[in-house]
Amino acid sequence: MSDFGSFIEKQMNSFLEDSVFNDFIHKELVPLSHLNEKHSRLILEIDLPFVDKKNIEVTLSNDHLTVNAKLTKTFCISRGNVATEFDYFKKTIKIPNSVDMKQISATFKNGILKITMPKPVQGRKIPIK
């Protein structure tokens, strides 16, 4: 393995080689996300590396949208003597009132989940005399 590969592997797995670690915590990772407001819709993008499309679950309940995604590999972070293992991404957001809940859709491409939330057409047309 190259220096770079070793470097990354070391970052990821150093805790496994260290016998002093005695405290393992299993948690869900909060993925990076970004909400972008366009004219007629809101677009929520969520970064989901190490995730297969089949392992993503998007659920809608009341006014909350929750994304659960299982990682294909366990991701570990070590701080001092504490190692934390992550197997899932989880993120819940409150959906703004202005969204048409029935029209929410999602796509997954290049490891990024894109949730499109259209705004309902509002108002009435005013005729021009």
């Binding site: 190259s2 770079f4 590969g5 990354i8 970052q11 990821m12 970064d47 590396p49 490891g111």
Partner: peptide, 22 residues
């Protein structure tokens, strides 16, 4: 510059750099 290793580690890099990105 051989990019093989970088491509292999691409997803790790995305995960590892989450906090720095924030």
């Amino acid at each position: 510059i051989d990019l093989t290793e970088f491509k292999k580690q691409a997803d790790y890099l995305r995960l590892q750099n989450r906090q720095l990105m924030e």
